[in-house]
Design a protein around this nucleic acid. Structure first.
Lengths: 201, 201
DNA sequence: CAATATTGAATGAATAGTCATTCATTTTAA
DNA sequence: TTAAAATGAATGACTATTCATTCAATATTG
């Protein structure tokens, strides 16, 4: 018997996730019907429940699986850099690259994350914390090397950095007009954040 | 006839708004039932519809009326300051003061604003833009006075500043533990943002 | 090699609830 | 007394989830 087609990574799971991302991005989690996702994915409503326990879990899976990929790729790219300030620069660069690569996903994460963190029971969003901790790790490293003032708290700085980047993400994904290019956003963000955090020479 | 009680700013209107803020903060807009708000406000479900056209409008009114007050108070406080860098410093200070004063409102605005901006039809949220434009106004003024680099775009900077402050707001209102005090958040935010934006002397 | 049986993925109509909004009725107060 | 305000039960629309059924693909059998 030849290798059967079905031995490759199950198509439907991915197909439904992509449809969910696209639909949540367009209409938001609460305004999206399971039937909307089913239609977008070209499957029956019931099929979705063969792959995801319920609508909440669909959103959670979407976060988890996406954050996993993002974290892995960020860590990979940062691992070849030793200077923490350069790492922060790279982090910002990668953040915007990812947004540009998957606008729908960026929109879902940016718009739905807060709601989800707060309202989906049992969901602690470890993966999101892990993403934020990449930033605080860089800051701590920089402080150890005397590149960032010791009195700034990494737990606060990571949130400021994320907040600033996330807000810029939002204007880019929500603006129909591309008033600001990703490149300009990335450039200004890098300049302000590095200037703000690093000790001037 | 003496001034009747009803001639003062209608009690029920305010009563319902406060109940809505409290309930939206606790459960989020989509998970809040009109009956929840009614119960919190000690009125009947139907009474809410005498004061607000529907649930969406209730949220919109909440934003509008709150932002009006906030904008007025910020403008008042900034008007006595001439140095734009000092204005930015004051803006951040006031932002955190307001959060401390009304935690529920801060939470609703921070968590629901994105959703609402995107999904409530017809609602352009002029008031929120007005708030952001206070920041860009300060930046433009600072640029004119040579205190901020000309190549930074005020439309981008205002969003970075807001994003950073808003994310810090979020950790404060969502964290049961007060891991970071408002004062520390305010202090670190001010330092990083001013350092990031202002030209060093 | 058929013919038949088994499997389980996929379907989508039906269910079972939920909740925003309405409005006939009651209460308030001038 | 009467107009306005308030009430809350009833309505009607909406939708997440279920599950009996279908059917294509694979396995079994003679």
């Amino acid at each position: 018997m030849k290798n059967t087609v079905n031995h490759e990574k199950n198509d439907k799971h991915e197909q439904i996730l992509r449809a969910a991302i696209k639909t949540f991005a367009r209409k938001g989690f609460y305004n999206t019907r399971i039937s909307d996702i089913a239609k977008e994915a070209n499957v029956a409503d019931g099929t979705i429940y063969l792959y995801f326990k319920n609508k909440d879990i669909l959103l959670v899976s979407l976060f988890e699986e996406s954050m996993n990929q993002i974290i892995q790729m960020v860590n990979e790219r940062l691992s070849s850099i030793t200077d923490p300030i350069e790492q922060l620069r790279a982090f910002i660069k990668i953040h915007f690259e990812l947004i540009k690569k998957d606008k729908f996903l960026a929109e879902v994460i940016s718009v739905e994350l807060r709601q989800s963190n707060k309202f989906i029971k049992e969901y602690k969003n470890i993966k999101f914390k892990e993403y934020l901790n990449i930033i605080s790790g860089i800051i701590r490293d920089a402080q150890a090397k005397g590149l960032v003032a010791k009195h700034l708290m990494p737990g606060i700085i990571k949130r400021m950095v994320f907040g600033a980047l996330d807000e810029l993400t939002l204007i880019w994904v929500l603006a129909g007009d591309s008033k600001y290019s990703i490149e300009k956003l990335s450039k200004d963000a890098t300049e302000v954040l590095i200037n703000g955090i690093a000790i001037k020479k």
